[in-house]
Write a protein that binds this DNA or RNA. Structure first.
Length: 505
DNA sequence: TCGTCAATAT
DNA sequence: TATATTGACG
């Protein structure tokens, strides 16, 4: 260790050089000396071993050729590895992957292709430092501050990881080999979703190591999770200080005419990224005529819903759709739809001239503190009594013999943006045109959208298939808004008005 | 050993 | 900026 504290370090590094070709050895020796290392050169591996056994503390590092007659480099490496703790660098004229890997697997700390460059030789001290650091215990570190033991451990575990890809790529820059640690992108909605899922699943047991295990993501470490957790909690705390506040994008947007862009569209851009649930749950049997005027496309259709479903609006929900969505009958409540199927359905919907929006029957991820309906007793009562001035009611009550919505989960999540859609449910020979009020997700503070929930569904009217004004003129379903002449009203406004009282504090 | 926090580094 | 690392403390 003494040489490390030497201010001329790495001068004086004690190198044992082994090569049975005298020419190569001379060359190597010259290079080493140029770096002001203290060189012991030997033509034989056996001799080298002898020197090492005599006093292993005489050398800091061994650099050896691979191809040697009496004992090749690998054997030497192996023996040294068994008997002592000295870094060994392998050298050969061949830089092919197999040979290099063989060296690495046998425990070489580096692999140089002959002839080595001066720069490579200049850098060999790093291996010594690395090994010393790995070995050092708290008592060794008298020059270092106390309390760093765990950080050493942290460093080591990172190093051993990065060593694997570092050495194979055969790079030796000026940097110590812990630079290549891969960064994880928590902006990846799937990754963050996994995190959130684990976070809530674990409840108060949500600590880094458990979240890590729960997430089961390769490349993730406890430390990274801890870092993310730290940030996430901060944001949750921030949010909890202003509960039930409606953000800039509630109610008023989402008109077909004279609106800037639909609220959802705004939302997406304001927040940069949508939340995408990792689940694929679709509800069957509804087609939505949105007043939002959102043209579904790859970037916005995922917002309203984790995974949208689209049913063709031009035809009622008949056996044709049953066959298209073959899984419907197997699982009347939920179904899985492949992306291509979905795209296909979407195309049909879009081609019909109707804008399709989407919703899911369940909210997969949500912030529990926003879901408690007891926070909003009046709202909750309205849902069940049906006395609200906006059309809230339980679908299962207003749709006799209809189990389409049985599995809806009503989360009165009165936070953030609200929106509503006009939905047409096709069932057998009838269509049910409904407003479907939703709260369309919110920014969880991590630039991710939390999945939307569906507070209510209400049947506006039902009529037989051959009288579906929505197909000819979807706007017919939308009432004009007296406050905004020339624009169209929507349940957004009702919803907004209804929840406004709760937003005061 | 781990969890957490704030500070700092990359 | 987002993410990772670190030191200190319990």
């Amino acid at each position: 260790m003494e040489f490390i504290n030497n201010d001329k370090f790495p001068e004086g590094l004690r190198v044992l050089a082994v090569d049975d070709s005298s020419l190569c050895l001379k060359l190597l020796e010259a290079l080493l000396k140029k770096c002001r290392y203290e060189v012991t050169a030997t033509l034989s591996a056996n001799a080298a071993l002898g020197l090492l056994r005599k006093n292993k503390k005489n050398f800091d590092i061994v650099i050896t050729d691979v191809q040697m007659d009496e004992m090749n480099g690998f054997e030497l490496l192996k023996t040294i590895g068994l008997e002592m703790d000295i870094p060994v660098i392998m050298m050969s004229t061949s830089g092919d992957y197999e040979t290099v890997m063989k060296g690495i697997e046998h425990g070489a700390c580096d692999y140089l292709v002959k002839p080595p460059s001066l720069k490579e030789i200049q850098n060999i001290w790093q291996h010594v430092v690395r090994l010393k650091k790995n070995k050092s215990t708290l008592s060794d570190l008298d020059t270092e501050k106390k309390g760093t033991e765990r950080n050493l451990k942290r460093r080591n575990s990172n190093q051993t990881k990065s060593n694997e890809d570092e050495d194979s790529s055969h790079s030796s820059d000026e940097l110590l080999p812990n630079q290549k640690r891969t960064r994880i992108s928590w902006a990846d909605p799937e990754l963050h979703a996994k995190f959130v899922e684990a976070f809530y699943k674990l409840g108060d047991k949500a600590v880094p190591s458990k979240i890590l295990a729960e997430m089961n993501v390769q490349g993730l470490t406890r430390e990274k999770v801890a870092s993310h957790l730290q940030k996430y909690r901060k944001i949750l705390e921030k949010q909890s200080k202003k509960p039930n506040s409606i953000t800039a994008f509630n109610g008023m947007s989402g008109r077909l005419r004279n609106s800037t862009f639909p609220s959802l569209f705004n939302l997406q851009f304001q927040n940069g990224r949508n939340y995408l649930s990792s689940s694929h749950t679709y509800h069957r049997g509804t087609s939505q005529l949105s007043h939002h005027g959102v043209t579904p496309n790859a970037s916005n259709r995922s917002f309203v819903n984790p995974r949208p479903h689209f049913l063709p609006s031009t035809q009622p929900y008949t056996s044709q759709y049953s066959s298209t969505l073959g899984t419907i009958n197997q699982n009347p409540q939920k179904m899985q739809v492949s992306d291509s199927t979905m795209q296909n359905l979407h195309n049909q919907t879009y081609a019909s001239g109707l804008n399709a929006q989407t919703f899911s029957s369940t909210s997969k991820l949500f912030d529990p503190h926003m879901v408690s309906s007891s926070k909003f007793p009046e709202y909750n009562a309205n849902i069940h009594s049906g006395t609200s001035n906006f059309p809230f009611g339980e679908a299962s009550n207003v749709l006799p013999n209809n189990n389409l919505f049985d599995d809806l989960t009503y989360y009165p999540m009165l936070d953030h943006a609200s929106s509503s859609n006009l939905n047409t449910v096709f069932q057998n020979d009838y269509t049910f045109n409904m407003t479907h009020s939703t709260l369309s997700g919110y920014d969880d503070g991590m630039r991710n959208m939390v999945a939307p929930t569906i507070p209510s569904t209400n049947v506006m009217e039902s009529r037989s298939v051959d009288q579906i004004p929505s197909l000819e003129n979807p706007l017919a379903f939308l009432e004009t808004d007296s406050d905004h002449l020339g624009s169209y009203s929507s349940a957004d406004d009702d919803l907004s008005a209804a929840i406004r009282p709760y937003q005061q504090q």
